[in-house]
């Protein structure tokens, strides 16, 4: 039945660009997610220009100023100030840099580890596959948050440690997806043709197989980035992630938790931004998955 809709002989498929456009119309989530992510990225990059104050500048005379829409707001601090009188809008903007930066770094680093393992297992199979699959299974048996806590506690908290620990923990989905995708590609005749031409194995993997995995790689990367951002927030909240006074949304929630009863907006604003960012990335990832593999959605 699937053959009935396949493009016929000589009717060339639309160009990739046109396909993405058409797909955007069918997947509004993809467009919305991309728009929100772009907005937050621009805000993060332009934080030095957009922020009205130095995010680290304390003003103990103006502690816990409420945001503009509440009584007692001050025009100098449109989103108010925290318990040390630091401008909340500025801290939120710089916090976006931390979240996005860590998310991106972890997604890239864990992507390198996971892709290398997954592609190796999928291409060579046999004993190599067995060993790598065992490593993946072992990794899946580790409780991420506990191991991250233990590692950070042991090595000491710093941005680099945080990124390294998370990259070493979050590569499993890459490995699983890339292994399956590589196995599928390896059985395709164009790989056999490359072998018959005398291509070396590294060349086949890098030049023939990897470009065909790009779609799936991007999808996994978005999902991993979202997970990394959440994990960073969780670790920072627990005091083992980003260290004060660096503005991180997770840390800001932690700092605001004593004020939850009377100044809930201190928690609400970083929390809402965190949810918005992760939601945007995940929606984008889902949309990309549909575009990359339309067959999964009949």
């Amino acid at each position: 039945m699937s053959g009935a809709l396949a493009p016929s002989e000589g009717i060339a498929g639309p160009r990739p660009g046109a396909r993405v456009l058409a797909a955007s119309a069918r997947h509004p989530g993809l467009v919305a997610g991309l728009a929100v992510l772009l907005l937050l990225t621009v805000a993060a990059l332009a934080a030095p220009l957009l922020a009205p104050h130095d995010p680290y500048a304390q003003d103990l005379a103006n502690r816990i100023v409420p945001p503009a829409w509440m009584d007692g707001a001050k025009t100098a601090h449109p989103l108010g100030t925290d318990h040390l009188g630091r401008d909340y809008l500025s801290r939120l903007l710089y916090g976006a840099r931390v979240s996005l930066g860590i998310g991106l770094a972890v997604a890239l680093l864990s992507g390198l580890i996971g892709t290398a393992l997954g592609v190796t297992a999928g291409y060579f199979g046999g004993r190599i596959d067995m060993i790598i699959s065992f490593v993946v299974t072992t990794r899946l048996a580790l409780p991420i948050v506990l191991v991250a806590l233990a590692a950070v506690a042991l090595v000491g908290a710093s941005l680099q440690t945080l990124v390294a620990v998370m990259a070493l923990l979050l590569w499993d989905r890459y490995a699983v997806v890339m292994r399956a995708a590589t196995q599928q590609m390896r059985s395709r005749a164009f790989v056999t043709a490359a072998r018959a031409v005398g291509c070396s194995t590294p060349r086949i993997i890098v030049a023939e197989i990897l470009p065909n995995l790009a779609n799936q790689l991007i999808v996994v990367a978005t999902l991993e980035m979202a997970q990394a951002i959440l994990l960073e927030a969780a670790l920072s909240f627990l005091g083992l992630g980003v260290q004060a006074p660096i503005p991180s949304w997770g840390l800001m929630i932690a700092e605001g938790k004593e004020h939850i009863l009377f100044e809930p907006w201190l928690i609400f604003m970083p929390g809402a931004l965190l949810v918005l960012l992760v939601l945007a990335i995940n929606t984008l990832g889902d949309g990309l998955r549909d575009v990359a593999a339309p067959s999964t959605r009949a």
Binding site: R188, A189, F190, T192, A196, N212, A214
Partner: peptide, 15 residues
């Protein structure tokens, strides 16, 4: 020796 395979949809790298 060079091959020509059955399925021209699979034997060419789509990228």
């Amino acid at each position: 020796v060079q091959p020509v395979f059955q399925d021209p949809y699979a034997s060419l790298n789509p990228r």
